[in-house]
Amino acid sequence: MPAVTPSETYATLSAMITPALFMTATGSLIISTSNRMSRIVDRIRQLNLEGDELGRGARAVDFVDDRLEHVAVQLDRMVVRSDLIRKTLTLLYLAMALYVGTSLSLAVNALLGGWLLVVPTTLAILGVGLMLAGCVQLIREANVALRNNRLEILFYQKLRYQRASGAAPATEVATPPPLRR
């Protein structure tokens, strides 16, 4: 094994710190994505409870059929959101693993005399690619979330209009177009 000089050791340690910046950014995305996942889980539980209460007649509200249909549509959209978040977390955790691998392979590369440089470089590139893919998934999930908000607003505007016009609760509800994935 070749002798390693102190300046080479410091250069190696400095190079190993660089992936830590990516790890920090990825960790922040993981935390915020996990929080989004928690909100989705809470909303699914709330919608399930609401649908159950409406289905049993446990709530004294008007337009029950419309509300049940709305809950069903919202639950379908929550499934899409939860799938996107699950994929995002998988990508971000894989990116984190690749950044850790980058850091470790830089140390091994230094110990072996520098002939493994392609390994940490490849791991870093793959990690950045996965992080980019995770960000794209987060954009998709945010768009679904905002479309859900719009659907909520439109539903309650519809209820307000039906009440104002004195319409009888509908038994058949027009189904909104399917969600684009």
Rank of each mutant, 00 (worst) to 15 (best):
V144G: 08
A142P: 02
V144Y: 04
A167V: 05
A167M: 11
F155L: 04
L154D: 15
I139H: 14
L146H: 10
Q137G: 11
K158A: 09
Y156N: 01
V144E: 10
L146G: 01
S165T: 13
Q157A: 12
L159A: 00
L154T: 00
R163C: 04
L159C: 01
A164C: 07
R163D: 06
I139Y: 15
A164P: 03
N149W: 07
A145P: 03
N143W: 05
L138M: 15
I139K: 13
A167F: 09
Q157R: 09
N149I: 07
A142W: 00
K158D: 07
A142H: 07
A142V: 06
Q157G: 04
A170V: 04
A168E: 14
P169E: 09
A142Q: 12
N148A: 06
R160A: 15
L146I: 09
Q137I: 02
Y156F: 14
Q157D: 14
R147C: 00
A142S: 13
A167H: 08
Y156A: 04
I139P: 02
L154A: 14
A164G: 11
P169K: 12
L154S: 15
L151G: 03
G166N: 03
P169F: 06
Q137D: 15
P169C: 06
R160N: 13
A145H: 04
R160W: 04
L138A: 10
F155C: 03
A168C: 12
A168F: 05
R150W: 00
R140W: 13
K158W: 14
L159K: 14
S165W: 04
R163W: 07
N148I: 09
S165E: 14
L159E: 11
R163T: 05
G166S: 08
R147G: 02
Q162I: 05
Q157F: 11
Q162H: 14
E152T: 13
P169Q: 08
K158P: 01
E152S: 11
G166K: 08
I139W: 15
S165R: 12
Q157S: 03
N148L: 04
G166I: 06
F155H: 15
Y161R: 14
E152W: 11
I153Q: 08
L146P: 01
N148V: 07
Q137V: 00
E141A: 07
N143Q: 10
N148F: 01
N149Q: 10
A142D: 12
A170H: 07
L146N: 09
Y161F: 14
Q162G: 03
A164Q: 14
Y156L: 02
N149V: 07
A167T: 05
A167P: 04
R140G: 00
N143L: 11
